[in-house]
Design a protein around this nucleic acid. Structure first.
Lengths: 161, 161
DNA sequence: CGGGGATATTTGCAAACGCATTTAAATCTG
DNA sequence: CAGATTTAAATGCGTTTGCAAATATCCCCG
């Protein structure tokens, strides 16, 4: 027998029962990244970029020539999805696939000049979303936060990249 | 003219170029939540639960009788996706939809006893994934981290729920 | 050094997703 | 208070996704 009392619309204060959720890190992180990613996705949509394409481009602007499998991990995009995103990026001349020198099963991915230029035009939007997220949070607190994230990343990657 | 030097397989140390990424909070958060959600999704798959269904159930275990629109925000699931997830959960008798008393456009969602019981069996898995994520991070640091997340959540929700 | 298993990537296909639209009801406005 | 606008939820439909299988290559071991 659960509490079946009639639903009462409540003030837009945080609800009592939500207090649990808003102290739960995974919940907060999903909420935050959900909105961050959605807002970025909306901005990129007009530029013909999907989230997987944008992420691949972002990672490639920093890491030169990863294997597709590695890029999949770094960009947090499933391999088959990434494979198709790369098809499109290559079609647009933003990246280039190149057979690995020593393992001919493997493919390395490189960003082209056009791809890098394209990403430069995207970057300000991403930086803006980032800054919005951290507004009012002092540098010292930001550093500590990133430090904790790094520990968490180390925890979750079992013995992978 | 970018550096087109031949690709060299590198040791599985963090790559030089990655240092930028691993100091960038949104990147780290996407990496961490990507794996957290994937591992949870894999565990739930065997139990007939998708991510939207699991999230809805989790939120409903804490918040009683939200509007579907509110549940959509809390559970970070797109409204149309949530609508269909609720169809399934209702079909399985885990939740119940009920017309709002004062606004007959709106629907409130309640978890059933069966739904609550089902969620109780799920919860240990979620807690385990959570604990794995925070392994080795002391309580004080965890608290500070959650505090920062709460500020971030306040930043990104414009003037919504 | 040949065969069995592992690994890298792509592709087929069914399911899931999300945008846009629809339906229904509430609210605002003159 | 009628008509126009906004809001809540469901649904139609084309696109995207991701699992699993296919393909190709590598590596290990007897």
């Amino acid at each position: 027998m659960t509490d079946q009392s009639p639903p009462k619309p409540q003030p837009d204060q945080p609800r009592l029962g939500e207090i649990g959720l808003t102290n739960y890190a995974p919940y907060l992180m999903n909420r935050i990244m959900g909105r961050y990613n959605a807002s970025l996705r909306d901005e990129m949509a007009g530029l013909g970029l999907t989230t997987p394409k944008m992420r691949a481009l972002a990672v490639l602007s920093v890491i030169d020539g990863p294997l597709i499998r590695e890029l999949s991990v770094y960009s947090v995009v499933e391999q088959s999805t990434l494979s198709r995103a790369l098809d499109q990026l290559a079609g647009d001349g933003l990246i280039r696939r190149e057979a690995d020198a020593v393992d001919s099963r493997a493919t390395r991915v490189f960003i082209t000049e056009a791809g890098r230029a394209h990403f430069e035009t995207l970057w300000p939007r991403m930086a803006e979303a980032h800054e919005r997220m951290f507004r009012g949070i002092p540098p010292e607190e930001r550093r500590a936060f990133v430090g904790t994230l790094q520990k968490m990343l180390a925890n979750i990657r079992k013995h992978e990249i």
